[in-house]
């Protein structure tokens, strides 16, 4: 498991990134930027990079974040760990990743229900078709909508 052809984000995908396009242009949020974080092999480093990410968001006084991943399997450990570290700082967090019928979470926690599935294939599997299961603009809108609701529920938005 890792990054298959249907979920891998090409250089073109980053160039046109729909998540950046949608979130950065929304006038209802004060967009701060994109934290790019890798997925190390070593477990100590997996935990460390998740913690460092959460520290940054806390220092930036972030109210809410959307986390996305371009692979599944081994990297789910990083994904859930980083979500938990961010959540523990009192920051609202929602996720986007490929799940389908093939890549469900091995371990579930309070954050898993806030992870949206970006699968587009009928079979719900890694189809080996480039671009098929990539995060799309529609996924980005769904995630931002969910984050807005979650921030309200978590009391991040004061009115």
């Amino acid at each position: 498991m890792g990054i298959g052809p249907s979920t891998k984000e090409t250089t073109m995908h980053h160039f046109h990134d729909p998540l950046v396009r949608v979130v950065a242009s929304d006038p209802d949020v004060d967009f701060q930027g994109v934290i790019l974080v890798g997925t190390p092999q070593d477990n100590y480093l997996k935990n460390l990079v998740g913690r460092r990410t959460a520290f940054w968001l806390e220092a930036m006084r972030t109210n809410g974040a959307i986390i996305s991943a371009d692979g599944w399997g081994n990297s789910d450990v990083d994904f859930m760990n980083t979500m938990t570290e961010i959540g523990d700082k009192g920051i609202s967090i929602v996720g986007l990743k490929f799940i389908g019928t093939q890549a469900g979470f091995v371990v579930e926690n309070e954050h898993t229900k806030f992870v949206l599935d970006i699968n587009k294939s009928k079979s719900g599997t890694e189809t080996e078709v480039v671009g098929e299961n990539n995060l799309s603009e529609k996924d980005a809108h769904k995630a931002l909508g969910l984050l807005k609701l979650k921030m309200r529920k978590d009391g991040q938005v004061t009115k």
Binding site: I35, L36, A69, I86, M151
Partner: peptide, 17 residues
């Protein structure tokens, strides 16, 4: 910048192995 609105960031987890 949209001062006063909730501060939002994106975290992108990418391959690095």
């Amino acid at each position: 910048k949209h001062p006063g609105k909730p501060k939002v960031a994106i975290v992108k987890e990418v391959a690095g192995q």
